[in-house]
């Protein structure tokens, strides 16, 4: 038997999607283990959690990557020095470089053009672009249109969407 973590419905062993609510039950075990320790979901910790140093973010040519804590995906930052983050919606003229809508961006309160992450020499910088629900670094809200330096392991929240920043040292 498998109890669905989403709706507590009991499914037969071997079920892949909950027959009651449709939640995926298998095939993402590897992703779940990437989640950080419990408790961080509710209150952001004081200090950044330290990710394993052996981790190579996003392949050889990436200068860093974004680890989406809720869904476990890792998005590499590669190919250019500046990425705008946001979500694509209908009839929108300006597209973000990284579209977060597959990761519940809408429900988490991510703005269409929320923030920009860029590399400036050795420094990695994030700047809020006037989002509706704000950008937070390790739980502290940043001032709109002011650049902030990011460190390896920082947890950035766009609205409620939490992303761990993994940088290549």
């Amino acid at each position: 038997m498998i109890v669905c973590p989403n709706c507590k419905h009991t499914n037969m062993a071997g079920t892949m999607f909950c027959s009651e609510c449709g939640a995926q039950l298998v095939g993402k075990d590897s992703l779940i283990t990437q989640n950080i320790a419990p408790g961080q979901d509710e209150v952001l910790p004081q200090g950044p959690s330290v990710p394993p140093r052996s981790y190579q973010p996003g392949g050889a040519d990436a200068w860093g990557s974004l680890h989406l804590l809720d869904t476990g995906q890792v998005l590499p930052l590669t190919g250019r020095n500046e990425f705008t983050l946001g979500r694509i919606s209908e009839g929108q003229p300006i597209m973000p470089d990284i579209d977060l809508s597959p990761y519940q961006a809408y429900a988490s309160g991510v703005s269409r053009l929320h923030a920009v992450v860029k590399r400036d020499g050795g420094r990695i910088i994030i700047m809020d672009l006037g989002s509706a629900n704000g950008t937070y670094i390790n739980g502290k809200r940043v001032v709109t249109n002011v650049e902030q330096i990011l460190n390896h392991g920082d947890i950035v929240a766009l609205g409620k969407l939490k992303i761990q920043v993994l940088l290549k040292s």
Binding site: M1, N11, M12, A13, G14, T15, M16
Partner: peptide
């Protein structure tokens, strides 16, 4: 197959 093998269980199970 959805699973490489079946498991000995005392309850019905699914395979796709």
């Amino acid at each position: 197959f959805s699973r490489p093998n079946l498991v000995k269980l005392n309850e019905p199970q699914l395979v796709y």
